[in-house]
Design a protein around this nucleic acid. Structure first.
Lengths: 224, 224
DNA sequence: TTTTTTATGATAGTATTACTATTATTTTGA
DNA sequence: TCAAAATAATAGTAATACTATCATAAAAAA
């Protein structure tokens, strides 16, 4: 028995809510597996259709194109991390402790607590690390931002910035620090794996713990 | 009269050195203009050929594909920033002052000092901001890294990490901080322009100065 | 249950992209 | 001035990113 969380995502991202049908959920599930496997550039709806024994045309009824699907996945991730943080900080008052939990959620995201049976949060995290920024680094950002496609990211950052300000009310860069912690977490994990000379994090079992420690150290220096 | 710097880039990136011929230099020049204009996804060799009154086939003699061309541009940028830092810190001994110059070079990169007549460093910087990470966020990273395609980035970061260690020999994260300063500079400028709720930097004339100030503040807190 | 609606599948087709190949022409430079 | 190299012109192919149409199956409404 799994906890069923219905993640709330901006309706404009999809043509038809994939959470509402078996085919839709299959699209999400296997798009994560396939993007992880072949990378976003080589990923396409034809290959995805083959994986799930469906057709290109059927997938196009859910998403306008693979870019929209990526925004969907990334938004799911942002929403999922927000959710994780919310439940894990629910009974916590100390904002310093809260920020530690936030950092832990940025770095580990999924290690535990799979929310449902069609989204593998672990794999989704690794897509986030390699492909995440491609969701908003496009010519269409401004238009898509206008339609609210990145709302989940902004909400997450706003929440984190709030905690930062609770710790240090006069700190001048709460939003910058919040987005930097998120981006750093992904960047440094990516570098550890692929471009190790750009980071001090070593590609080992405990690299997540190392990144966590590093981010905690940095925030402590900046805020305490 | 312009200073002619021959930027040294890994030979594997191109099939034929574009710096050595008028067509090659034209390819570089107009690829920068065109990518800035239409974005990397919509950019292709056919459009580029039209811009320079040449042909697709001719461009393919210089670069295997548009991805290789992006790596070339990004490597140019990394090499250019390294060069800028080198000449601007040449007579400086104080590593703190050096790091300030490094940060200034990360943020402004080009504002002054155009090195030659076919690379517009200003536009190249803005490509770096929007498209830069796409050069190494691909399925081929490991293979390309093996061929030394990202050497210029690593050299830049190694140099900066060295300065960081000169300031604070016991600091545990010199490489992480170096790459973070570089990435933050680009990310925060991008956010200021397109996703302002993710940053404290305001999209104004002096946003570069703001980012510079912010990065100096952060490094000071972490290292001094 | 029957009918109607909706979702999906099967198939086909188009425009664009990302190349490769071939031959002609121009440029360079020995 | 002749040979070699670089570029242009042209054509062609396989894959991609869709769109359209119609058949069928499943779900919902009557």
């Amino acid at each position: 028995m799994s906890i069923e969380i219905k993640i709330s995502l901006n309706e404009g991202i999809y043509l038809k809510d994939p959470q509402d049908s078996p085919l839709g959920r299959n699209i999400i599930k296997h798009s994560i597996l396939l993007i992880e496997d072949v990378g976003f550039e080589a990923f396409n709806f034809k290959k995805l259709a083959q994986e799930i024994n469906s057709t290109e045309a059927s997938i196009y009824r859910y998403f306008e194109n693979k870019h929209a699907l990526l925004i969907y996945l990334v938004s799911w991730y942002w929403a999922w991390v927000s959710y994780l943080i919310k439940i894990n900080t629910m009974n916590i008052d100390d904002p310093k402790k809260k920020l530690e939990i936030i950092i832990n959620s940025f770095v580990l995201a999924s290690m535990d607590n799979p929310s449902n049976d069609y989204v593998d949060e672990n794999k989704l995290h690794s897509i986030m690390i390699s492909e995440g920024t491609k969701a908003y680094r496009t010519k269409g950002v401004d238009e898509e931002n206008g339609k609210g496609f990145f709302k989940n990211y902004k909400e997450l950052i706003t929440m984190v910035a709030g905690v930062i300000l609770d710790i240090a009310p006069t700190f001048e860069y709460p939003y910058t620090l919040a987005s930097t912690l998120f981006e750093m977490s992904n960047d440094q994990l990516y570098f550890a794996k692929h471009l190790p000379r750009l980071t001090d994090i070593k590609e080992k079992e405990n690299k997540y713990a190392e990144v966590e420690k590093m981010l905690n150290y940095i925030t402590a220096k900046l805020l305490y």
